[in-house]
Design a protein around this nucleic acid. Structure first.
Lengths: 231, 231
DNA sequence: GCAATGCTTCGTCTACCATCGAAGCATGAA
DNA sequence: TTCATGCTTCGATGGTAGACGAAGCATTGC
């Protein structure tokens, strides 16, 4: 009778508030311990443990044992799935936040699993497109020779980013902008570069990425776009 | 504390088996009445009614009153969301079907909301790409002049497909193939064309699209691909 | 060895929500 | 008007799953 993939199972896994909180926190890209996730979700350790088992059984999380800690991280595909669902939820007006000062910062720049999302992330990919650094090949994204030079000039080792398990460039849908930003190992490396060079830093306890004044102007200069609407 | 879109709400809505059944049936693209959906989901009418209210409140469904019937249909974005979740679920091995004869047919060709999905759907988009009928512009898909001619030659009124509310061409991720097929008004028109010209027909009570022997060879001739792996 | 930490398992409780039958409202037909 | 159909609302019920405390395993550190 019932054919095809079991969407109800995925829905149930994401549908519990405690689990949804955990997944949202893990969108920050860090691997977190069971205790940390319990606190983030606002439940006791035993409860969190049960939730984490279910999420892992469902294939949403990867788990790594390290000493007496257990670290949980999102499976890469899970991050993309969650962004999609967030985009849908946002388009339906299903927000659970009380609008606060943190929200604009999140819309401007935030971490999405391990790469840059938000206004800045979308701008970056747009700019790379406009200047022929990245081309769309069907639905895949390819770094052009020109783009490779550009990235190398920033001091990033492009050749070292190749991975058998993960594409170099990948589009990831952005819930706040409803357009794509750059994921993949290159997206990860670029964000890491911004953080390492001090152009930006993470806001503790949030997914927000805060650019310094200098970092912002440098970023905007690096990634210009045609319709210049500076944020 | 909790910021951003409420993914738990979407998850809960999709997570109930009865609701998931309804949504799956509605992926067939038809608008169905409450009674039909009750039967499809295997629940009583009152129960179905309650579920449908929730889905509508959540913005997953659109509802149209017609006489004493109430017709429900997927909101267009919902179809895309569900395909994404199906893709994820399938990649995790979360299938709820007992493998049967219907399954291969579904993988080969099925309806996805209103356009062709499955092996045939993916092949069609691949072929259109290869022959320069469609180009990827960033992440959007554009029909080229060459493509327009090709479609017109099939007897489809391309200019009549323009819509302010929906793109002409759109990529839609395919859960069985894990690659994209063609959605949008053009995708819809092409499927309609196959059905009208008798190349294919819908299997009643399923999302499967059955091509006749003649229809199949005509389809393969229309949409050739490089690595010729005929199904 | 013994204690401390981090997590899981167990047992129990509770609350929510899916479920159904019966009754109530509409709409359309006769 | 009256009846039939399609659906919603109401009220009662039951199952399920999420919640926690206590106890049980591991791993580490002393």
């Amino acid at each position: 009778m019932k054919e095809g993939p079991d969407i109800a199972r995925i829905g149930t896994l994401i549908g519990d508030p405690a689990r949804a909180n955990m997944l949202t926190v893990l969108m920050g890209g860090e691997a977190l311990t069971a205790s940390e996730l319990a606190q983030a979700a606002g439940v006791s350790l035993p409860t969190a443990s049960a939730h984490l088992s279910k999420l892992e059984d469902g294939g949403l999380l990867n788990q790594r044992k390290q000493g007496r800690h257990r670290y949980f991280a999102l499976a890469p595909e899970t991050a993309a799935l969650l962004e999609t669902i967030m985009g849908f939820a946002a388009s339906r007006g299903h927000l659970r936040h009380r609008p606060g000062p943190k929200d604009p910062a999140l819309r401007q720049a935030r971490i999405c699993y391990d790469h840059l999302a938000g206004d800045f992330g979308v701008r970056m990919l747009d700019s790379l497109f406009e200047h022929g650094a990245i081309e769309a090949d069907g639905e895949a994204l390819d770094l052009t020779a020109r783009g490779k030079t550009f990235i190398c000039d920033m001091g990033i080792d492009v050749d070292g980013l190749a991975s058998p398990r993960r594409p170099l460039c990948k589009a990831c849908l952005d819930w706040s902008e409803r357009r794509s930003h750059l994921a993949g190992t290159l997206g990860k490396a670029l964000l890491a570069h911004f953080l390492e060079t001090g152009l930006a830093r993470r806001q503790p306890g949030s997914r927000a990425i805060l650019f310094t004044a200098k970092g912002k102007s440098r970023f905007l200069a690096l990634f210009p776009v045609k319709d210049a609407e500076a944020a």
